[in-house]
Nucleic acid binder design. Structure first.
Lengths: 169, 169
DNA sequence: CCCTTTTCACCTAGGTGGTAAGAT
DNA sequence: ATCTTACCACCTAGGTGAAAAGGG
């Protein structure tokens, strides 16, 4: 997933343990298709939801102090459309819209911690991170934006990335 | 450092936190030089000890269950001869002998844990991991052994690694 | 026709010893 | 004379979109 989901965290108990995780919820059960002539996504059907997997940040569990001292980056999170995937990747349905969610779980040291499960986590949703999953880009401007901003796609650039988006509006 | 120091751990409390770390102690304060004609190391002087740095395994702290479930590999540990190093690498004095040490520290949850510091760690020394630090290999057979066994040196191989050491004694 | 999969060249990032030049 | 440094070609490992091939 590019760009990588990154968060800066404040307000944790520095000495307590926390798990950080992400999941992806369908925005609706609609299938979309891209109308090239009008440059827009159209509803194209209705589909059942995919199995809801969860991605634990690989540093979990860790102390609040550890999580807060720098930006937390979910750069190990991978997406797949393979329902039989056994690499633990997040399974998404292509041509559907998703909302990434970020969850912070406090690791309660009390013996009966299950009782407090409801109050021991918080979920954060950033609506600007919504996206449509695809197996191939539908919109040439998205392709160009990715090529311009992802260092691994440098081989496809035909001008200096510093000139972008100044010369591409 | 190649080969990487790796350990398999048993007997931890799966639910307790531990820090894993390594350091390198001088075997003596002698400086060595290599006698090429006799293929052996000779004492060549006496030197003061270097600043003793420590390398925390980057997954520290983590639960016993996490440490025990697979081999722990210190593949992020780097060595340097630069006394002014500010990358946190382990500083060694070239042409001196070192004994790597492995330490397990139990993170004591008690408020007065400092009092129990002495009983909350264990040190493990594997004498077969002793080595002489160098800036350039002195012994051609060491060079050949490294080339044969380190995947990153594959470019210097002139035969199949499977044939080694069978055909090189 | 529309979407998915496979393969590829081209990158990033970084770990090897060889070699020649530098330092003491 | 002996040891150290800087740079290099050559690897491993893996993240890009392009393009062609595959599938329903």
């Amino acid at each position: 997933m590019f760009p990588t989901f990154q968060v800066k965290i404040f307000g944790m108990d520095p000495m307590a343990d926390y798990m950080l995780l992400m999941d992806f919820v369908p925005v609706d059960d609609k299938r979309y298709r891209y109308a090239f002539h009008s440059s827009s996504w159209l509803v194209a059907g209705k589909d059942p939801a995919t199995p809801g997997r969860v991605h634990y940040h690989p540093d979990s569990p860790a102390k609040g102090a550890q999580w807060m001292k720098q930006i937390v980056s979910f750069d190990k999170l991978k997406l797949t459309n393979n329902l039989l995937d056994d690499n633990g990747h997040i399974i998404l349905n292509s041509m559907h819209r998703y909302q990434p969610r970020f969850h912070v779980v406090y690791v309660d040291p009390r013996k009966d911690s299950e009782k407090y499960a409801e109050e021991n986590f918080k979920t954060f949703v950033f609506e600007e991170t919504r996206f449509t999953a695809v197996t191939a880009y539908q919109n040439h401007r998205i392709t160009q934006l990715k090529i311009a901003s992802n260092p691994f796609a440098k081989g496809f650039r035909d001008c200096d990335p510093e000139d972008w988006p100044r010369n591409h509006r």
